[in-house]
Design a binder for these strands. Sequence first.
DNA 1: CGTTGAGTTGACTCCTATCAAGAAATGTGG
DNA 2: CCACATTTCTTGATAGGAGTCAACTCAACG
Lengths: 253, 253
Amino acid sequence: MPQTKVVSLEKLKTACKNCGLAKLCLPLGLENNDIERLDAIVRRNRPLHRGNHIFQTGSSFGSIYVVKSGTIKSYTQCPNGTEQVVGFHLPGEVVGLDGIETGKHICSAKALETTAVCEVPFSRLEELTATVPGLQHQMFRLMSKEISKETGLMVLLGKSTAEERLAAFLLSLSVRFHSYGFSSTEFNLSMSRREIGSYLGLALETVSRLFTHFQEENILEVDRKHIKILEMEQLFKLLSDQNGCLDRLQHPQ
Amino acid sequence: MPQTKVVSLEKLKTACKNCGLAKLCLPLGLENNDIERLDAIVRRNRPLHRGNHIFQTGSSFGSIYVVKSGTIKSYTQCPNGTEQVVGFHLPGEVVGLDGIETGKHICSAKALETTAVCEVPFSRLEELTATVPGLQHQMFRLMSKEISKETGLMVLLGKSTAEERLAAFLLSLSVRFHSYGFSSTEFNLSMSRREIGSYLGLALETVSRLFTHFQEENILEVDRKHIKILEMEQLFKLLSDQNGCLDRLQHPQ
DNA sequence: CGTTGAGTTGACTCCTATCAAGAAATGTGG
DNA sequence: CCACATTTCTTGATAGGAGTCAACTCAACG
């Protein structure tokens, strides 16, 4: 049935694109009906507005989420009230893997702007990974990637200066935007200076100063939330001088 | 066959204990022959001496490793020569999950003292997880735990003072030793001040000063590598003041 | 018994947090 | 649509925590 075949290939693309799990199934050469099975378990909820939560610390874990558009911030609330940002999740990236172990989420996740996510019920995903050849391995890979990020983070937060941290952050965003088809040199930050600072272990004032500093050096063009990278090479140089371990900080998934 | 049953239960304990994957199979109530299958794929290599590598950055990934005794340090080498310690792995803990994603290890792992590890060939483990009910979920949990550690690390490295970092480190060791049956208040550090500093994002001099400081405050008794915790409560207090997000920094697995 | 590496301690410097005030943007309600 | 309130961002001044440099002690080891 050649016609079915063609239809299925189309389905693959659209289904994967829609469910946001493209990275999960595309490299596999999944069977057509496997794609459909994967597609079938995905819930497409209505878009989140700025400030809406996907889940909160302590809430019971049931699904993982794939960002389709917008930005998700994951964070924890420290007892003294301050929040610690632990991740920004751009389109194509996965949120919620922290909850598998205990069955409860150990951080909260909220939308920084209007954001669409796909919900993948985890128990149903596990049924699939147990039966669809190769899908299990893809899940292991996905989680391994998250674990690898830790290495880059330790270098960044342990050894690097404020300048290096912001450079690494901007390059990370650049690469991730690019991999999803956006410009790698011009984009809008959906997070505040404070949130960037929290993520990078810096005070918001330091982040602000660095933006103006990078602008003075003609490395960036900054207009509030709008960023234009003028000298990508300069940003890279800021990293490679001290450490080159930052490559794996946050690659696209 | 009641007798077989008893033997198998014994086997469960010894097999799990030997292979170091106790945490992986014990909570499952695995079938007897499943235990044997898990046990069968584990390779028991000869003990490592201080300085021996399990794997190095860039080497191809084939197995994960479970520490049976001793300590493994995982680290990356920065271009400028300095090393960044990214983890210390105590008995019962797993090393090497970083390699799944790319098929190459992104850090090196070496023994800090005489150390015994079990090697679990990953492709064979994957065959098992695909067929043994529940084992897949345990693997997901194990990896989720590693991902969760990231959250604690970000708080620790992003927001905490030197004092808080060392307190968190010592408490983490304490809990992990305790969970494996060792004393929670008295133990030997297998890593140097420099390595602790690298892991915590501090200079070795700072670590040294903090040890003497803690000793002056009668929180610790320090004799070179030997540590005795006198005031566990004081250590906890150092954390809870600023942040209580550090619980999950490094729990036993 | 000299050599080597690890650890301690002191003096000094510098990066970045903190405090503070003003500017710009965003949101709100009449 | 405008005035007011609120938040975000910027910029400056100051202070403190931890890094760096350096000298010394101590233990390990051949």
